[in-house]
């Protein structure tokens, strides 16, 4: 990935030097392994900290909301889709953005890797040539196959290449064959459960939640100035970790993302306790596809399904 990193630095330097943008948003190494941080580079000197590897799973579209500057932004497939959503929702103007497209080679699942290791991980080295990762910590060093530890959403991803960009840093990567990847196997598994089993499944899924709202803060869609969980007049939902409150939060947050979620996985990646928040959003994605033939963030020309009316919208639930 050094070629990617170098190219990102080179382009960012050029953009800042020519004054085409006021800042470039990219990734730098995180303070903990497997967690690269977003970074705003405002001058050429900052640019050298930019990196690109398999730990850039956070969605950078989150950081352009309502900004007024000209922004250069490093965007992999899902980031670019969320930039499209942002433009459609008037959260940023297209001409404010210079999108540095990154053909994405999938991100690794930090929760999965952490669970596989006997102790705390201190560093991770990537060998792009043979597709392996070497994870080291105190007293252990293990080599993993990258393909086996991908984030679930990356393993299912159909849009690794950016859908909207001003320049690409490398040749486009080959997209996965939609015939071969079963997008909704996990959703169907839940759908086939009896109601009580479903309830129990989500009860155990959310049982670890500490209501830290990292999922909401990492989500590029969650840009409301005051989130419904933070409002106190009226208070829509209790602020406790009572199972009813936790479930209300996750249920409503997910629903707010209906027809907008690009399955970028930032929520799951940011979760400190490893809750698969996508269990809800993926279901909504499936419903949008089945009911409205809609996939979010692919084009600037269409309005999202919850924003439009079509005479043939499904309405069998209305009596």
């Amino acid at each position: 990935m050094t070629t990617y990193s170098d190219k990102i630095k080179e382009i960012s330097k050029r953009l800042l030097k020519e004054g085409k943008v006021d800042l470039v948003i990219g990734f730098r190494k995180g303070s903990v392994p497997l967690m690269n941080q977003p970074m705003f580079a405002k001058n050429e000197g900052d640019v050298d900290s930019f990196v690109w590897d398999s730990n850039c799973g956070i969605n950078l579209a989150n950081y352009v909301t309502d900004r007024s500057e000209k922004i250069g932004i490093v965007a992999k497939g899902c980031d670019s889709r969320n930039l499209v959503v942002h433009i459609i929702e008037n959260k940023i103007k297209r001409d404010q953005l210079h999108i540095i497209g990154v053909p994405c080679k999938a991100m690794v699942d930090r929760h999965k890797i952490a669970a596989m290791m006997p102790g705390e991980i201190e560093s991770i080295e990537e060998n792009e040539a043979d597709g392996t990762l070497t994870v080291t910590g105190s007293g252990f060093s293990e080599t993993l196959n990258k393909a086996g530890v991908l984030q679930e959403n990356c393993a299912l991803c159909m849009h690794r290449n950016p859908v909207l960009y001003d320049e690409l840093i490398a040749e486009e990567v080959t997209e996965q064959n939609p015939e071969e990847v079963d997008q909704y196997a996990a959703v169907r598994e839940v759908e086939n459960m009896a109601p009580e089993e479903k309830w129990a499944y989500f009860d155990s899924l959310f049982s670890e939640c500490i209501r830290c709202y990292a999922c909401r803060n990492a989500c590029p869609l969650c840009y409301c100035p005051t989130c419904f969980v933070d409002e106190s007049k009226p208070q829509w939902v209790g602020k406790s970790v009572d199972p009813a409150d936790v479930r209300t939060f996750h249920f409503l947050r997910a629903y707010h993302c209906a027809g907008r979620c690009t399955d970028c996985g930032a929520c799951v990646r940011s979760c400190p306790v490893g809750i698969n928040v996508r269990a809800l959003t993926k279901k909504l994605e499936k419903d949008c596809l089945e009911n409205f033939d809609w996939k979010s963030g692919l084009t600037l020309d269409k309005r999202p399904p919850l924003d439009t009316f079509r005479p043939d919208d499904p309405e069998e639930f209305i009596k």
């Binding site: 839940v190 109601p195 309830w199 479930r247 629903y255 809800l280 279901k283 909504l284």
Partner: peptide, 12 residues
């Protein structure tokens, strides 16, 4: 919304 409620195990 109704689908998601049902998905979570609530009676539609």
């Amino acid at each position: 919304m109704k689908n998601l409620m049902e998905h979570m195990g609530l009676d539609p």
